[in-house]
Simulated scan of single mutants.
Amino acid sequence: MMGDDVMTILYADDDPEDREIFADVITEINPDIEVFLASDGMEAIQRLHELPAVPDMIFLDVNMPAMSGIECVATLRRLDRFKKATMILYSTTSSELESYKGMKAGADNFLKKANTYTATFDMLKRLVEAAIPCI
């Protein structure tokens, strides 16, 4: 974790509305979580290199211009700093081929984006709570 006990998340998605919804949901789950946003895989890599520590979770949309989420995962996994980072591909597609490619590239999980705010909240809340160590 980047701060003493502040969870950090980076989310890359080329859709500004999806980025806004994701950030809103995470803030509603826990306003102390720091969320960093990027508009594609290239910007995600740049932002990750600028951060003082690896975020607790990295969410990447699959279909982005410049560099897809799958390409971004593969690139990051080749760098020592990100070998153990939690990377989740987060997409509107539920294609088994895309999921297979993503997991083969090194993603820890492949999640289909929910259709509603409530479903998105419930899914991300479970992930965030699972990532926070019990005290």
Rank of each mutant, 00 (worst) to 15 (best):
G3W: 03
D4C: 05
D4V: 07
M7E: 00
T8Q: 00
T8P: 00
I9E: 00
Y11L: 06
D15E: 10
D15C: 05
R19I: 12
E20G: 10
A23C: 10
D24N: 12
I26L: 03
T27L: 07
T27I: 08
T27A: 07
T27G: 07
P31N: 03
I33K: 00
V35P: 05
V35A: 02
F36V: 03
L37A: 13
S39H: 08
S39G: 04
D40H: 12
D40G: 13
G41Q: 12
G41V: 07
M42N: 13
A44T: 09
I45M: 13
I45D: 12
I45G: 11
Q46W: 13
R47H: 07
R47V: 13
L48G: 01
H49R: 14
E50Q: 14
E50D: 12
E50I: 08
E50H: 11
P52I: 06
P52Y: 00
P52R: 10
A53V: 11
V54P: 05
V54M: 03
P55W: 00
D56S: 05
M57Q: 01
I58K: 07
F59K: 11
L60M: 06
D61Y: 00
N63R: 04
N63D: 04
N63F: 01
M64V: 07
M64P: 03
M64R: 06
A66W: 15
M67R: 14
S68E: 02
S68W: 01
S68H: 01
G69P: 08
G69R: 05
G69M: 05
E71R: 09
C72V: 04
C72Q: 05
C72F: 04
A74R: 15
A74N: 15
A74I: 14
L76W: 01
R78M: 14
R78G: 15
L79R: 10
D80N: 15
D80G: 15
K83N: 15
K83M: 14
K84F: 08
K84L: 08
T86E: 14
M87L: 13
Y90F: 08
T92E: 05
T92R: 07
T93F: 01
S94E: 09
S95L: 04
S95Y: 01
E96N: 10
E96L: 06
L97G: 03
E98V: 00
E98F: 00
Y100G: 04
K101N: 08
M103H: 02
K104P: 14
K104R: 15
A105W: 10
A107R: 13
A107C: 13
N109K: 11
F110C: 01
K112I: 03
K113T: 06
K113M: 05
A114L: 09
N115I: 05
T116Y: 11
T116I: 09
T118D: 11
T118K: 12
A119N: 10
T120K: 06
F121Y: 13
D122L: 04
M123C: 10
M123Y: 05
L124M: 13
K125R: 15
K125Q: 12
L127R: 06
L127P: 02
L127T: 02
A130E: 09
I132N: 02
I132P: 00
I132L: 04
C134E: 10
C134R: 08
I135L: 15
